[in-house]
Write a protein that binds this DNA or RNA. Sequence first.
DNA 1: AATTCGGGGAG
DNA 2: CTCCCAGAATT
Length: 341
Amino acid sequence: MKYLQLEIAEPLLIWYQRNKRDLPWRSNPTCYKTVVSEFMLQQTRVETVLPYFKNWLTKFPSFKILAESDENEVMKAWEGLGYYSRARNLRKLAIKINNLETIPKTQKEWLVLPGIGPYTSAAISSICFNEKDAVVDGNVVRVLTRIKNIETEFKDGSQAVKILTPLANELLCEKYPGDYNQAIMELGATVCHKQKPLCILCPVQKQCESFKNQSVDQKPKIKPKKIVKKEVNRVISLKKDRILLHKNPTEYKRLANVYEIPTLEQTGLKNIETMPFLLKNKRSISNERITEFFYYYKEEKDVSSQENLHWVQKHDLGRITLSGPHKKWIFSLIESCESCI
DNA sequence: AATTCGGGGAG
DNA sequence: CTCCCAGAATT
């Protein structure tokens, strides 16, 4: 029983010790750093997180300072990272922790806190407090389905996580759960890729049943999800040193309190065919594939009386929180159009 | 159980 | 074009 555990865990831990990436939350680790990194890393790549993590630690170096921070400042530090409820939940979490006598320890204690689910609670409790709880994320799903040659076709990723959690806990190294959890994720991230896995470098190649089968690249089997296509018209309007932007109200689930270039509907304007067409852009938001058409509106009647529309000064763009793509569009617009504003 | 929530990189 | 990324909350 213990032998089966160690057969995977031992080579994995030795490999991890030698090959782990030098990441900022791994040097002089603290519980706060671990919590911040785990929030940022939810559905987000390590490379994307790195600059945000460093900036965050400078601005909010502790639970206490984060707890006493202004929410707008927190949002600004998250600008462009996406899933903005993570930022608000992280701040709420800091406020709760700051009001406690002692910091939570077990997975169960972490699980009830805002923004913390099964994965994050297991990660924090195992890494910070050596609790015996296995993490199961996309990396672990990939590694386990390959090592154990699991051919089940999962409906989606979350079903795979749920089904594989018992197996992950069986294989967990009970002596070094934190390092083991990080090791199996690190393997998934740097060796056991989705495409073109580097099996030749894999420390558990001998234990991998899919490698024997030469079926590594066919696992895990997860049904693809539907992609929804959408088209949106947006209106760019400029006046002196200002640009017309829409602030999503707090009730919005998507991009709440974040500013964007208004849609045609948000301006209340009609007959778009009278406006000069500027450009077309494509992007994706979760499962949506969005094509956006930008039109120029030369102010004839002022539309800023419309709900949540504001003439924002160029100077103030650094104070408000813009969505990532809109931030890029707005600044490239201003740059290419220096003379016409 | 299914949907929503961002944004970007890789193939 | 597609899937996926150190997932969680809501419906």
